[in-house]
């Protein structure tokens, strides 16, 4: 369909604009997913890293980390899942800065598409990729002794909780992707943020083993909350923590709101 110039986006109703924004997002998501399927090496190696983490902690460090109530592998896997989906946000930063460097963003910016679509398409594609990596990781976990001790339903709920959070985090890393001069720098800028929030979180060891000041950080910072929420759902028992589940959604909503507002603003102003 063609529109006369007079029927511009800005004259459409909110509902129509949202529909176009959604369709544009879907097209960009499709493009991002197709593009990653064309680089099977990238899929292979990006799945390999979390698998290495599972094996490393399960067999190398795990024996030295005492946990209460469940076996270490059952304690560990929720933490590794959360760490993995959070690290997935690096792909958002890298993907966007590559599109910027290659000039694709220039092309998109000259098209009559929704201003949010490039970012929403990127983060949504990364969400899909996160689900795929979680599936692989679940299989690996089951192979090394992980069991869904609190039931399959709660395991799936745990996955949903962390995916929602990771999606909001992805928008934050979209900002890095827009601001970084190139993909390498985007990656380098991402790690100093991701390492403290994923490792100082109780993902790999009980927070009680940390010094007091760090314990406070590990419990209250967003990824710490998500780890507690996921473990509450996947392990249950002594780890039950329903307020963490609630707080995860609060964090996700706050981060998503703030990050997406700032990211779209940055996207408009990019030069």
């Amino acid at each position: 369909m063609t529109m006369s110039p007079e029927v511009a986006m800005e004259k459409l109703s909110v509902a129509e604009r949202s529909m176009w924004a959604f369709r544009d997002m879907r097209v960009v998501t499709w493009r991002n997913l197709i593009a990653s399927l064309r680089i099977p090496e990238a899929i292979f190696f990006s799945s390999l890293q979390p698998i290495m983490f599972v094996l490393l902690f399960r067999y190398v460090f795990g024996g030295a980390i005492p946990v209460a109530g469940v076996s270490y592998v059952n304690f560990l896997m929720p933490g590794i899942f959360v760490q993995t989906v959070c690290f997935g946000a690096v792909a958002t930063a890298i993907g966007l800065s590559e599109d910027m460097a290659k000039g694709l963003v220039e092309r998109f910016r000259a098209l009559p598409m929704a201003r949010s679509a490039v970012l929403a398409g990127r983060t949504t594609a990364d969400l899909v990729r996160n689900i795929f990596v979680l599936l692989i990781l679940t299989v690996v976990g089951l192979a090394v002794g992980f069991r869904m001790v609190n039931g399959v339903g709660n395991f799936v709920l745990g996955c949903i909780v962390m995916i929602v959070f990771a999606y909001s985090l992805s928008w934050g890393f979209a900002i890095i992707g827009l601001k970084a001069p190139n993909a390498e720098t985007a990656q380098l800028m991402s790690f100093p943020i991701l390492f403290p929030i994923t490792f100082a979180s109780g993902a790999f060891a009980p927070v009680e083993s940390m010094p007091g000041w760090l314990q406070w950080f590990a419990i209250h910072q967003p990824v710490g909350v998500v780890v507690a929420a996921t473990r509450s759902l996947m392990c249950g028992g002594p780890y039950t923590n329903s307020s963490a589940v609630g707080w995860t959604f609060v964090w996700a909503a706050v981060l998503l709101g703030g990050f997406s507002w700032f990211a779209v603003r940055s996207y408009r102003k990019v030069d």
């Binding site: 063609t2 369709r23 960009v28 000039g103 092309r107 098209l111 679509a117």
Partner: peptide, 24 residues
């Protein structure tokens, strides 16, 4: 020189993407 194509998509997919984003 700056507006460019997506290297990982085929020629056909590139044009279709732009067409859909132009709301065809």
């Amino acid at each position: 020189q700056y507006a460019t194509v997506d290297e990982n998509l085929t020629g056909r997919e590139n044009i279709r993407m732009v067409a859909q984003l132009t709301h065809l």
